[in-house]
């Protein structure tokens, strides 16, 4: 007999969010041209969104058959499990750094933005001290700049702050 795996913390909520997103997508697809003709511009988007709605519903049904994320149940222990297994603090901190980097890259420019991100990221993940983080990030930044900007002539963000 197959033993179903344990549901991951937050998996049920994620399934419901996917279903909601799919339903919204279907409504938007319907608005393109409705059911006016079987060769209209909205037919295929509706078919894709319809497939998403059905499969998201099947995913939710599958989730319900799985064993719960924790033996004790309770929203609090599931939330704790979510921040241990799916989005632990270290991952969340790094994601925050990535979001900050990508949102400010156009403003700070490649050299400053990537330099700060590499220093922050390497210091956070590699954990060998500030000096080591600074040296590794500087060397990496120089290597990327030489290879992509100077050798391959790739256009890098100049940064609006310094223009």
């Amino acid at each position: 007999m197959n033993v179903l795996r344990r549901r991951r913390a937050g998996e049920s909520v994620f399934g419901v969010l996917l279903l909601l997103f799919s339903v919204l997508a279907f409504v938007q697809a319907y608005r393109i041209s409705g059911f006016s003709s079987i060769s209209s511009a909205g037919v295929f988007p509706m078919a894709a969104a319809g497939a998403m709605v059905l499969s998201a519903a099947a995913v939710i049904a599958g989730n319900r058959r799985m064993r719960p994320p924790t033996d004790h149940g309770g929203a609090e222990s599931v939330a704790r499990r979510f921040f241990t297994d799916v989005a632990p603090p270290a991952v969340l901190a790094f994601i925050a750094l990535v979001v900050l980097y990508m949102l400010t890259l156009d403003w700070l420019g490649f050299v400053v933005g990537s330099g700060l991100f590499l220093f922050g990221g390497i210091t956070l993940l590699h954990r060998r001290g500030l000096v080591s983080g600074l040296l590794i990030s500087a060397a990496s930044l120089a290597a990327i700049y030489v290879v992509f900007r100077l050798v391959f002539s790739v256009v890098l963000p100049a940064g609006r702050l310094f223009q």
């Binding site: 990535v98 890259l105 490649f110 990537s114 991100f117 590499l118 990221g121 993940l125 990327i144 256009v155």
Partner: peptide, 23 residues
């Protein structure tokens, strides 16, 4: 990986920007 992963993200950002120079 502590060094590799930030590098991949920098390359991803720069690579995406390089397509149309559009943030």
């Amino acid at each position: 990986k502590g060094i590799l992963l930030p590098l991949i993200l920098v390359l991803s950002a720069v690579g995406t920007y390089a397509i149309q120079n559009n943030p």
